[in-house]
Amino acid sequence: MRPVVRVADLRKSYGPVRAVDGISFSVAEGTIFSLLGPNGAGKTTTVEILEGLRIPDSGTIELFGEKVERVGPAQRARMGVLLQEGAFEPYLRVREVLSLFSSFFPKSLEVQKLLELVGLEEKKKALVRTLSGGQKRRLALAVALVGDPELLILDEPTTGLDPQARRRVWEILEELKGQGKTILLTTHYMEEAEALSDWVCIMDHGKIVAEGTPRELVTSLGMASYVEFELPLEFLPELEELFPGCVRQDGEICVISFSDLNSGLSSLLSWAQSRGVALRHLLIRQPNLEDVFLALTGRRLRE
């Protein structure tokens, strides 16, 4: 699959702060590519450079197979963009916003179909100012789709949405991927990246700290399972001695990673029995991207 986006050694600083520090990646056609990282990791700056809203200090950008010095209307005509902090004229109606933006693109999708797709057909005559935060986000998604783009750049597409609306957006993105669209999204929700992405780049402090498919990234930890339970703090040193390098305390929760769950869990339960300790709220789970980020940076995604 040919890359729709290719970025090499991209750099952008704001004064002494290196927001994007020499990153390189490529997004294959017809895939969902996620930039995952905490707030301030450099995700938004990266996508804003690709949208033409920021000018990089250095690095090369290729879009749709062509090297571009500066992203302009010719590239934007083939993209749909959902900004993290975009907005629409408050006194326009939902349908009018979509009609207006459809006039900017050389080809466009039918407004009625878009309204149905994002679940806003009942609100088509409503003024933008009367929409809820979630409805505004769905309108922004419809606007990103109105030009029938080859590439969708979505900056935190589900931030501010309730779980049901978030699921609906995921379904829409899967549907678009099925239609052969290429999607580049940023998120700080690891479950979103995990559920949607074909390829994930984990960013921190302007750098890509890891990349691969979600499965590859998780497998790279070498851990089969995580066991979590509530534990009084005084017992922590004993457990650290029993499972060296595998224990961490997260508030009142103790987390132990096991490469072999059967033997690890049986050792833990024996220790608890011998010491008379109750492992309250015990939970066994698979490793996820949050664990990958934590293992790589020592911090959680939402810190």
Partner: peptide, 13 residues
């Protein structure tokens, strides 16, 4: 509030 940016990421000069 970001309206101008929204116009500019569409192919509008």
């Amino acid at each position: 509030v970001g309206i101008l940016r929204q116009y500019l990421v569409a192919p509008l000069t």
